[in-house]
Structures are given as structure tokens and as C-alpha cells.
Write a protein that binds this DNA or RNA. Structure first.
Lengths: 231, 231
DNA sequence: ACCTGAACACCGTTCAAGT
DNA sequence: ACCTGAACACCGTTCAAGT
């Protein structure tokens, strides 16, 4: 969220959809998805549930609005550079947003697959799609290239967010990464030979570097299939 | 699930983790994620909640077990062909499973990002990773290439599943696809120019063809970055 | 038009008690 | 060892009533 006012709510200041969404984001940031409850939201805003339902249809709509607000903020920064650099910037913007709001990953993936007509999917699609155009991809293939990029960005960033949060309360990200790698290395060698080999790979590299390596793999595919563009 | 027995439960036949998971999958298939409830599961299995908790720690574990069972089934089929053909086969296997069990997409994406140490992530990673190896990718890049593939497969298949289910009860997939395309085309032309242009793209093509086009984009990237492999 | 707050139907989970 | 079923704490949502 752009503005960072989060002083304790006093009964003055009229309720509004904006204030509700802002409070929802704060609760989600503080305690994850299970931390957003109409009871605590009601308490935080010093009202009753009916007041919230006057501004918002239901919890789903509130989750969509909270997700959209954070994503809009993450994509707001303008960038200028080569198409490849701009794709990196957009991808890292989403990566950072997910890192700062770990609940975001699940919401994005859910909303992407449940309600592609909602506000969130077009926002991300447009931001990445413009850069795909700039890469010189022919129009018939914009959707394919943009889809691949989007699914990878959200999936990989989500995976990374899992590494930084969750599990034991005071676990380092490095610790959790190591734990995942360990779990993979403990698998049956006969059945999971390749996964075991990848375990080291995963935990050795810098998160963002690893993330961008995937982006560049997709961009290499784009360049190979649609030569003549300028990256 | 491999075996298709779903006769109404009679009080004979002892309860088991397997029976519980089987019933859970049936409920999920019939009514989506909100259809899986300990009350109706209890009714279906003619027991009390305590009996289920004896075999299963909690609802999360049950969801993981149900997901893993369906995924294991989907990946069980052996395929033989060029690495590219095998990647297509694995991807289409997951695509079909998600199509047949629409609740699967959200579960996979959630479990991928929440508990990569669980049984589901390694299963998919291994299945795709072996084919990535066969493509001739050098070992340091197995994880990158496999990750891109996996996130795209799950994200795109999930998006497709949303198209086939949800929304109005008796809506055709074609109808829903058209509705999404329409929603995108109704966006502000100034802000969503590229998304509007992609709307037609999305609804015009065959689902599986479109899906495989994304796979081939990734494979083209692999071939470009790591030449010398045989696809 | 906007807000209050008691009430409703439902949920996952626990646990003393049985066999 | 395995199952029963009442009870607990909590959830999203509704709605008559107020201002």
C-alpha cells in the first residue's frame, strides 16, 4: 500500500471501503490469511459486521480488493530500459511484493485460476504483455508468451515466499530452504534420483538470481521462436 | 483414482486411511473444495469425527493425501518417445487430471508454495525433471528449467480448469471463455490495450493446443540456452 | 444512506467414554 | 487399537432495528 498510516483506529473518521481494505491488508500482513476475520476486522475498525457488509459484499470480494490494491502498488513504478530489463523489473516488483506480503502468493494463484475476469489478472497480464510486445513477438503469440511468463513469475515467487515464512516461528529462510533441500535429499534414491540432485541446486543460489534465471530461460525461448525482436 | 468403487457405504468394512482419502476425493469431485466437510465425510463413512481423526491428523493432511493420490495416478502412465514428446505427455497428464478434478489446481498451487517438503512437489518435480535431463540440460540448470516447466504447467492447467467449471451452473466452457474474453475486451482501451488484444487470442484456440504452445516456448528456451541436447 | 449488534447455521477439532 | 458422539470455540453472514 502506498500510504503507511496504521495508527490505532478511533471512532471518528467515517468508515469507507478504502479504510476496510487497508485494515484487511494490515491484518493479512500481520497474521496471514487466517488472521483476516470479520471479528477482528470489526474490532480493529470499531464497528459491527453489518457496517462492513454495507461496503463490501463478502469476504471473497474483500480478499480480491486487498490483493488488487497491493498488486496495483507493486506495478505502479515506471521503468525504462530494454524490454528484457523491463520484464526483469516487473517480475522483481511482483517478487518483492509477494516477499513483503506472503499471503499474496496464494491469493494471486487462486484468483488467477478462479476469476480471470477479476481486476487482478488483467493488471498483471497488461504489465507483462506490453513488454512482450516490445520484444517483437508477433500478435498471435502474445498470449502464449505472456502466459508462460506470468505463471512462472507467480509460481516461483510464491514458492520463494513459502521459504521465507511459515513453518517454525523463528526459522531463518536459509534454515527453511535447507530443510526443504534436506527433505528432498531424504527421498528414495531409486524413485527420486533427479529431485535429490536438484535439491542442492535449489538452496545454493541467491533467490533473486535463481528467479531471474527462469525469466531469462523464457525470454530465450521467445527470442528463439520469434527472431528479429530486440531484447 | 485408479479403482472406481463408489457404492454407498455400509457399516461393514473397516475404516482406513485409504477409504477416507477415497471418499474425500469423491466429495471434492462432486462439490468442489467447499464440499469436503467432516460432517458429510462422517455421514458418508457412517462414523463419527473421532474415527476420522484417528487415521488422519487434520483437514490439511487429508487434502494433501487426496491431492497426492490423484497426482500419483495421473503420473503413473509410462510414456516412451523423444524427450519433447514425453514432456508433452506428462504435461497433458496433469492437464487432464486438473480438468477432471477442478479442485486439484488450487490444491497443487497451494501445496507447492506452502509445503514444498510434502509428497506432491517432489512427485511432479521428478517426473518433469527426468525429461529435462533427457533434453541434455547441464546439471546446474536442471532446477531452473524444471521449475519454469512446472509452474507453467500447473498455472495454465489451473486457469483452464477455471474455464470449464465455476460460475453459472450450466454454462459451457466456451461460454465462460467468451465471458472472460468479453470482460477483458470491456476494459479501458487506454490502460488495457494489450490485454484487450490478447482476449481474442485466448478464446480462439483449442485448449490443449494453446497449452502445448506454452510448453514448446519453454522447450525452445532450453534448446537455445543448452544446445546439443536432443529433443 | 449508513451503522448496530444479536442471532443463525455451520465449521474443524477435542476428548472422555466405550469396545 | 479403534471408534463413538456430545461439546467447544470459532467462523461468515443476515437482518430487524436504529440514526
Amino acid at each position: 500500500m502506498a500510504t503507511g498510516t496504521r495508527r490505532a483506529q478511533r471512532r471518528t473518521e467515517a468508515l469507507s471501503r478504502e479504510r476496510i481494505v487497508e485494515a484487511a491488508v494490515e491484518l493479512l500482513d500481520a497474521a496471514g490469511e487466517s488472521g483476516l476475520t470479520f471479528r477482528v476486522l470489526t474490532e480493529r475498525l470499531a464497528t459491527g459486521p453489518g457496517a462492513i457488509y454495507w461496503h463490501v459484499a463478502n469476504k471473497g470480494e474483500l480478499l480480491v480488493a486487498a490483493t488488487d490494491a497491493v498488486v496495483a502498488d507493486a506495478l505502479a513504478a515506471e521503468s525504462a530500459g530494454s524490454p528484457r530489463e523491463e520484464v526483469h523489473a516487473v517480475a522483481l516488483g511482483l517478487f518483492s511484493a509477494i516477499d513483503a506480503h506472503p499471503w499474496l502468493a496464494a491469493q494471486l494463484l487462486l484468483q488467477l485460476s478462479r476469476s480471470p475476469g477479476g481486476p487482478v489478472t488483467p493488471r498483471i497480464l497488461e504489465s507483462l504483455g506490453r513488454r512482450v510486445r516490445a520484444l517483437g513477438v508477433p500478435e498471435e503469440h502474445w498470449f502464449t508468451a505472456t502466459s508462460v511468463l506470468m505463471h512462472y513469475v507467480l509460481g516461483a515467487a510464491g514458492q520463494n515466499a513459502a521459504n521465507s515464512q511459515v513453518t517454525e516461528p523463528d526459522a531463518d529462510r536459509a534454515e527453511f530452504l535447507a530443510a526443504t533441500a534436506e527433505a528432498w535429499e531424504a527421498l528414495d534414491p531409486a524413485e527420486y534420483e533427479t529431485t535429490r540432485a536438484m535439491a542442492g541446486q535449489m538452496s545454493e543460489h541467491d533467490d533473486r538470481e535463481q528467479f531471474l534465471a527462469g525469466i531469462d530461460l523464457v525470454l530465450a525461448g521467445v527470442a528463439a521462436l520469434y527472431p528479429g525482436g530486440r531484447a
